[in-house]
Amino acid sequence: MAELVTLADGIAELVRDGDTVALEGFTHLIPSRAALEIIRQRRRELTLVRMTPDIVYDQLIGAGCARRLVFAWGGNPGVGSLHRLRDAVENGWPAPLEIEEHSHAGMANRYVAGASGLPFAVLRGYQGTDLARHNDTIRTVTCPFTGEELAAVSAVRPDVTVIHAQRADRQGNVQLWGLVGVQKEAVLAAKRSLVTVEEVVDTLEPRPDAVVLPSWVVTAVAEVPGGAKPSYAQGYYERDNEAYRAWDQVSRSRERFQAWLSEHVHAGAA
């Protein structure tokens, strides 16, 4: 059964140096506060997995938490570049970053394989692209029924997956709705999971469109109101598009980013 914890305790307990960590949430319900807590606790040598790194991984990479990035689309949606990600790949700052790059379809299927307990997934994908040349987790497999050659991608099995959801009850059953992305698969593929939620309630009102993660597949739940900002939580608050635009300026220079880091993440830290 999932344990109700504070965010700081949840990260301290479940996210360890050197782990493969997936923070999922496809534009909606991004676990932004959990990412800041990982930075605050100065985790190192992480393999970060995420379909769309978004500003959460820009922050983790810039703060020096990552050794490797597994991803499909690394931009600031609708705005432009992720400057900290680019600085790491182009210039090795603050440390060289290994990359393992897929398409969205490939990443989604890698999580499905992980959640399904399979070693790989099959899809029609990557044919003719240069992606497989640089990535040995993309190979081909021959269909035993038709002889067709298809793409095979290895399963993703994070040590820990962190997601944000709208609600949980006191037993740790989790409910999320709206654009639910790949979160169910990412939690089920992982060895451990932490879910931050907008609120913990006495009873989860059933919703026909909701994904429910039963308490017994979740390791820990932390109540973190506003935990997805500046992304959004449907039914709670809207996406703060202005913050995404503002991040472009904050992240553009190393100095400005480091000032942001001391002011907004490490301020008051021992």
Partner: peptide, 29 residues
């Protein structure tokens, strides 16, 4: 015009909202 492909209005006005594996596997592929 949405700023991102996941802006809230997209889900709120959609005929159907599906997961990311589903959009690629069942709808696109």
């Amino acid at each position: 015009l949405p700023l991102s492909i996941g802006d809230g209005e997209l889900a709120e006005t959609a005929d159907a909202v599906v997961s990311v594996p589903e959009i690629f596997n069942y709808w696109l592929q």
